[in-house]
Simulated scan of single mutants.
Amino acid sequence: MKSRAFATAAAITAALFLTALLLSACGTGGQAAAGTSGDEADGTDRAAGGGETLTVRIGYQKYGTLNILKADGRLDRRLAERGIRVEWTEFPGGPQLLEALNVGSIDFGHTGEAPPIFAQAAGAPLVYLAHEPPSPRSEALLVPKDSDIRSIADLRGKKVALNKGSNVHFLLVKLLEQAGVGYDEIETVYLPPADGRAAFESGKVDAWVIWDPFFAAAETATGARILADGTDLVHNHEFYLGERSFVERHPDVVEIILEEAGKIDEWAKDHPQELAELLSPQLGIDVPSLELAAKRRRYGVQRVGAEVLEAQQRIADTFRELGLIPVDIRVEEAMIRPAAGD
C-alpha cells in the first residue's frame, strides 16, 4: 500500500505542476485550458481616461451558490455600480478551479472540502473565507441499477471512478474505512464528472463517487442506485476561497460577493423548483434533476470558525497518512489573520 500511496501522491503533484506550467505559458489565454470564458483573463482593464478598472475573476463549477449568482446577475449589477467588472469562468471540478487560482488566473471561487487540502499542499496561495452548511446527502457512491454490488465491502477488486482531489475523494476514503476495506483493495479511476458518467454508463467502471448535480442527473437518467451517501460520515461543506493577495487588497469586494451569496441563498432554499428552472438552461441539466439536487443541499453563508478548521485539518491528516498529499499542512495557515488592534 505504501508504494501505491507514494505513486498517487506523485501523480497528484505532477498533475498540479503540469497544469501550472500550461496555464502560465498561456498567459491571459490560460483560462481556456482550465475552464471556459469568453472574457479576457487580465486582472484589470484600462479605462479610456487612463484609469484602472478592477476585474474580479470568479471561478465556478456546475452547481453551487456562485452558479446561482451568475445566473441571477445581481452580483454583476451591484459591482458594476462601483465600476467593477466580473469575469466568470466555469471549471469541471474544484481541483481544476484551484489549479487556476494557484497560477493567478482567478481571484475567487468555491469548492468542496478536499480540493483546498490538495491545493494548499501544492503551495497554492488560497485563503478560506466562508462556507455553506453541511450537505452530506449531496454526494454519494453510485452503482448501476442492476449491479451485483450490494455493500461497500463488495467493492474489493472493483474499479471506482472519482474526480481526483475532489470532495468525494474524502467520502470514498471514509466509506472504505467504515467498511474495513483498504484503500489499496480497490482500483481508483480518476475522471472528471463528464468522463466519469460515460465510464459509469458504459460499464468501464463498477462504481462512481460523485456530487450533485451530476449525482442527481445520473439517478434520474440511468436509475443508478445509491450504495451510500455522506450521511453521518462527512460534512461536505462548500467553501468560498480567495487568492490571498486579492483578498488582502480588496476586502470590500470580497464582502460584497459573500453578502450577495447570502442573499441569493435565502431565496434559493425556499424556491427549489424556480431555482432548477433558472439553472437548467445555463447548465444543460434537466429541471427534475436540478430540483432533486436543490432539495438535498442546505443554504446559508457562514464564516469559517474553529470547528470547521479542525474538521478540515482531520481531512488533511487523513490524506497525509494515506500518502495522497506529499507534505504535512496546517489548515489554519490558509486564513487571513486580523491585523493587530482589529
Rank of each mutant, 00 (worst) to 15 (best):
H131E: 08
Y183I: 01
A198V: 08
A293V: 01
E81W: 10
G180R: 05
P326S: 13
L129D: 03
G262T: 07
I68W: 01
E201Q: 11
A221Y: 09
T53F: 06
A293L: 03
R330H: 13
R330T: 14
L155N: 02
R314Y: 01
P288A: 10
V86N: 04
Y190K: 08
A47L: 14
A41N: 05
V331N: 02
G262C: 09
E219Y: 10
D229S: 04
G230F: 06
W211G: 14
T55C: 15
F214E: 05
G341V: 09
K164G: 04
R4M: 12
A7G: 11
E81F: 11
G223M: 12
A268T: 05
R150I: 03
A130V: 01
D229F: 07
D270K: 14
A194V: 10
D286E: 04
G112H: 04
Q313T: 02
S166L: 04
G51W: 00
C26H: 10
D76I: 07
S37T: 15
T318G: 01
G83L: 08
W208E: 02
G112C: 06
Y299L: 09
S3L: 14
R57C: 08
T19D: 15
Y60Q: 13
A15T: 08
Y190H: 15
A334P: 06
R4P: 06
H110F: 09
L16A: 12
D286S: 03
R150N: 13
S105K: 15
F91G: 07
F215Q: 07
M1F: 10
L23T: 11
F170H: 14
D232M: 08
A34M: 15
P95Q: 00
L309F: 05
I186K: 04
G64E: 01
I257T: 04
A228V: 05
A10N: 08
A114P: 02
K269H: 12
H250Q: 10
A316R: 02
T28G: 08
R296G: 03
A10C: 08
E248D: 05
F118C: 07
S24D: 05
V234D: 01
R320G: 03
I186C: 06
L142F: 03
Y63G: 05
G109Y: 14
L18Q: 14
I336E: 08
N67I: 11
N163V: 05
Q96P: 06
L171H: 01
L176T: 02
T44C: 13
L324G: 06
I226P: 09
G123D: 02
D72K: 10
Q282W: 12
D42C: 12
I264L: 12
F239V: 00
E139L: 15
R337C: 06
T36N: 13
E332W: 11
T188P: 14
